[in-house]
């Protein structure tokens, strides 16, 4: 039990996108095209805009699909934009999406990936050890002149 370790990943965001039923696949495909690994989709039911749109509201499906994608900080804006455009969220009643910053993530990370990730740190440490220590020299600063 004691040899089990959890590696926390940071600098990630979760994008949540709520669209009408059967639109999720297009949104996920668009996200994958710009670098997202995949997505988790759940079914939901949502109302609100549908009622406010009057007669036009009947064209909006009450059944929704909720897409959740975890992405890294650097690819978040690109994925967000791609999903927005694929879901046609600029049209009324099509859905809504938002992005939250995550404190941390944990998942299975293969040992070789962990070793590779920690290698630069270990190398830098070894290099610092091997490098001869610089002798500290005291330098005297010129005395400040007091203004007239």
């Amino acid at each position: 039990m004691s040899d089990r370790q959890i590696t926390y990943l940071t600098d990630a965001l979760i994008i949540t996108c709520i669209v009408q039923a059967s639109h999720a696949d297009d949104v996920v495909k668009a996200a994958q095209n710009v670098g997202a690994q995949g997505a988790t989709v759940t079914y939901a039911r949502g109302t609100g805009v549908r009622e406010r749109m009057g007669l036009m509201g009947v064209t909006i499906d009450e059944q929704k699909e909720m897409v959740r994608i975890i992405v890294s900080q650097e690819q978040s804006d690109r994925v967000f934009e791609a999903m927005y455009l694929a879901g046609e969220l600029d049209k009324p009643g099509m859905g809504i999406m938002f992005m939250n910053k995550l404190d941390r993530i944990a998942t299975y990370i293969p040992d070789e990936v962990l070793a590779e990730a920690s290698a630069p740190k270990a190398k830098a440490k070894a290099k610092a050890k091997a490098a001869p220590k610089k002798r500290k020299t005291a330098t005297r600063r010129p005395a400040k002149k007091v203004g007239k």
Binding site: R4, N100, K101, D103, R104, A106, T107, Y108
Partner: peptide, 17 residues
Amino acid sequence: CSKMGLDSPQSGMVFQM
């Protein structure tokens, strides 16, 4: 994390926000 057994592959993902 420990209940999900995240030290083995294909076990899922946990996040906190």
